[in-house]
């Protein structure tokens, strides 16, 4: 146990995990309340095609994935604004386009299947110090931008129309949220993989919404749930010798069920 706590692999995983949890826990609340919970999922597919492109060009797949993901995010917003589509249709279009493009690129090259597979479940236990720094910076950017625009974000999430009339720059903030989500998704891709990054964006936030009575508490509890999922997920991975990413999501699910029960029992905060 003591070896574990001083192990660099463990510490790096924990640190990067906590940074990711912070970004996901905070952003998730806004996404879920704006009924955009699946945007992370859609962007993860877009990021997948970015990774494929990166492997084809044989040049920094994660960085290319980030660029592609940001472009995809902007495209989703543009289609949503100008395409007169319903709800998450734009998201559906872009995410399937991303996946199809990714698969097409994979089949064109037909030579990096295994490498791409590593991003299905991420490698939180094998990340470099550089990646820890990257996740730290990302979390900081998310926290600072959300902090600066905190009141305006609540306003527009709660009542978009009135926020618009009050002079809140709603479109700019919406763009900001989606771009931050895109960045978080790419980081999540590296740590917990395409399949699980949505889980971290959605589950802690939804769990927190079951029990929180104010917006501030929702954000705090969501972040707390994220932290607990990451930390106990990594510890469980050690004790049960199971992949860390899956354990993390498993704990998040348990917390969600717990929150549902606690709501039934009127245990709210």
């Amino acid at each position: 146990m003591t070896e574990l706590l001083t192990s660099g692999i463990f510490l790096r995983a924990l640190l990067a995990g906590l940074f990711l949890a912070l970004a996901c826990g905070l952003l998730g609340v806004f996404l879920v309340l704006r009924k955009e919970a699946m945007i992370g999922h859609g962007l993860a597919h877009v990021a997948f095609s970015g990774l494929a492109l990166g492997f084809i060009l044989n040049f920094m797949p994660l960085a290319i994935s980030l660029v592609v993901c940001l472009l995809g995010a902007i495209l989703i917003l543009e289609i949503r604004e100008h395409g007169s589509l319903y709800g998450d249709t734009a998201l559906g279009i872009i995410s399937s386009a991303g996946l199809a493009l990714g698969i097409l690129l994979v089949s064109l090259k037909r030579g990096f299947g295994v490498e791409l597979m590593s991003f299905l479940f991420g490698d939180i236990l094998a990340i470099s110090s550089g990646e820890v720094w990257f996740s730290g910076v990302l979390a900081l950017v998310v926290v600072i931008l959300l902090k600066i625009n905190y009141q305006a974000l609540i306003f527009m999430t709660f009542d978009r129309e009135t926020a618009l009339v009050s002079g809140v720059r709603v479109k700019r903030l919406e763009r900001m949220l989606v771009l931050l989500t895109a960045m978080t998704v790419v980081l999540g891709l590296k740590l917990v993989g395409i399949l699980l990054v949505t889980a971290l964006l959605v589950i802690p936030a939804s769990a927190s919404l079951q029990v929180a009575q104010s917006f501030k508490k929702t954000l705090l509890i969501s972040t707390l749930f994220s932290f607990v999922s990451i930390i106990s997920g990594i510890f469980l991975s050690y004790w049960l010798d199971t992949p860390a990413a899956a354990m993390i999501v498993f704990v998040a699910l348990l917390l969600f069920v717990g929150a549902l029960i606690s709501k039934k029992k009127k245990l709210i905060f």
């Binding site: 009141q151 305006a152 009050s166 809140v168 104010s214």
Partner: peptide, 9 residues
């Protein structure tokens, strides 16, 4: 919070 967000936006 409803009122604060309006005041602070």
């Amino acid at each position: 919070e409803v009122i604060t967000c309006s005041l602070n936006s």
